[in-house]
């Protein structure tokens, strides 16, 4: 204490003040910085790295399970499988408006929650839905089963030719 006093009076006050200021800056930055870091790490923590729901990529069976003319909703997978002749596709049945499950209707799809309507290709024909129903990538796996990848959306109208 005494040493400090002597220095500040003898060695020039400016040096003492700037040292104090610098220490205050370091302390302040350290505290604020660690506060921000821990706040950010909270978000990193609550953002799951692995999710426990259904897999986004799955097999739906052999092509024979879906004879030509099929239009069937796989409700647990939230997709609708369409087969016309040799062509097959999978459309999402999750409404693009607020995530309800659209039902199959004569004219295409209809959402029970807020009345959005889609035609058979998933194009919006009425209601508040902002986007058409996405089409998912469909491939034929080597074991002959049809595989749907819900992580990859494809251009509406592109079918898998069997």
């Amino acid at each position: 204490m005494a040493v400090n006093l002597k220095r500040s009076s003898g060695g020039g006050t400016q040096v003492a003040v700037s040292r104090r200021r610098m220490l205050a800056w370091i302390t302040g930055t350290g505290l604020v910085g660690s506060g921000v870091l821990s706040a950010v790490s909270n978000f990193v923590f609550i953002k799951p790295r692995a999710t426990y729901g259904q897999p986004q990529r799955f097999s739906i069976g052999k092509p024979e399970d879906f004879p030509p003319g099929t239009r069937i909703a796989l409700e647990t997978r939230r997709i609708c499988v369409v087969r016309e002749g040799n062509r097959l596709a999978a459309l999402s049945t999750t409404c693009t408006h607020l995530g309800c499950i659209v039902g199959l209707a004569d004219t295409g799809f209809a959402c029970p929650c807020h009345g959005s309507r889609f035609d058979a290709d998933g194009t919006v024909t009425g209601g508040p839905a902002p986007r058409p129903l996405p089409w998912f990538k469909v491939t034929l796996a080597p074991n002959g089963e049809i595989e749907v990848d819900k992580d990859t959306e494809i251009t509406p109208g592109s079918y898998l030719t069997l």
Binding site: F43, I46, K47, P48, T51, Y52, G53, Q56
Partner: peptide, 16 residues
């Protein structure tokens, strides 16, 4: 989208 994902802990409403 991030808020939605953080709230649900996944892509649909489920156990998480």
């Amino acid at each position: 989208k991030d808020i939605q994902f953080l709230l649900m802990g996944g892509s649909t409403v489920g156990q998480e």
